[in-house]
């Protein structure tokens, strides 16, 4: 059950017949099977599904952190590896993964140092992106002096500092409590609206997926595949209150149905 291209926007990510099989001691594991997906510029796409459905693996294939065993993938019209080498995306992991020996400012500076940017440019980007995630004033703190939510915001600033058009986020708020999560969801949405970036967002929370996304990709496990793609009819500008509207609940219901149909109970 693939999904047709949205012809109106240029395609940022194109996956065709994508498969990935891990060879393990207990035989092959089909992490991804026959994935067809295209994501247009400016989309906010959520990958949702139960654990083991390959949503993180798909994101890692897009980021060229895994190599598919079959099929093709292009990012910005080039191969995933070329895109990675061109620093086409910013990646936010499940944990903040900040380096404890660097201050917050120098953590944000890390990708910029790797890219070889001059010091003045680095300083500007650090200031700009820390402000974007509301962390100005914390430049000289070390990561272990901040709360989990602030650490994750710093890691988002670090991904944004690369100034990519594409943001790949792997359950970035999974480890945070509900209140912090709501707050960060709201901020992320504002950020997306302000910058017009394309976002691919992995989550296993239905409200989070529906609240954030313009398109929701429902995946199912064993083998990991796309079950259904749901286009959101919600307006682009949303507040947290939208979660009480019938429209929101209707989409959430469709996602829940999709997850249930795609889930196999034979194990």
């Amino acid at each position: 059950m693939g999904e047709a291209d949205s012809p109106s926007v240029a395609s940022v990510i194109e996956a065709r017949n994508l498969s990935l099989t891990f060879e393990t001691g207990d035989g092959p594991v089909h992490a991804l099977s026959d994935i067809d997906l295209s994501i247009g510029a400016g989309d906010f796409v959520s990958l949702i599904g139960p654990s083991g459905c390959g949503k993180t693996t798909l994101l890692r294939v897009i980021a060229d952190l895994e190599t598919p065993s079959d099929g093709s993938i292009t990012v910005n019209g080039v191969t995933a590896e070329q895109a990675r080498l061109a620093r086409a995306y910013g990646y936010v992991f499940q944990a903040a993964a900040l380096y404890p020996w660097r201050t917050i400012a120098r953590n944000v500076a890390l990708p910029l140092e790797v890219m070889g940017l001059p010091a003045r440019e680095r300083r500007e980007r650090i200031a700009r992106n820390l402000e974007l995630v509301n962390l100005q004033g914390f430049e000289k703190k070390y990561p272990w002096q901040l709360s989990g939510g602030m650490q994750q915001r710093a890691s988002i600033a670090r991904a944004l500092a690369v100034e990519p058009d594409l943001l790949l986020m792997d359950e970035p708020f999974g480890a945070l409590d509900e209140i912090v999560r709501d707050h960060l969801n709201e901020q992320l949405l504002q950020l997306w609206d302000k910058t017009g970036k394309t976002v691919v967002f992995v989550t296993h929370s239905i409200p989070e997926a529906v609240y954030l996304s313009t398109r929701i990709v429902v995946m199912s496990p064993r083998p990991g595949r796309i079950h259904e793609v749901i286009d959101s009819t919600l307006p682009r500008e949303r507040t947290l209150d939208i979660r009480e509207t019938p429209e929101f609940l209707d989409i959430a219901h469709r996602v829940r149905e999709g997850l249930r149909l795609g889930h196999s109970y034979d194990d």
Binding site: Y91, A97, V162
Partner: peptide, 11 residues
Amino acid sequence: MQRDLMQTYAA
């Protein structure tokens, strides 16, 4: 994760 991070920067 930290090594993956460096890889996403093409370090």
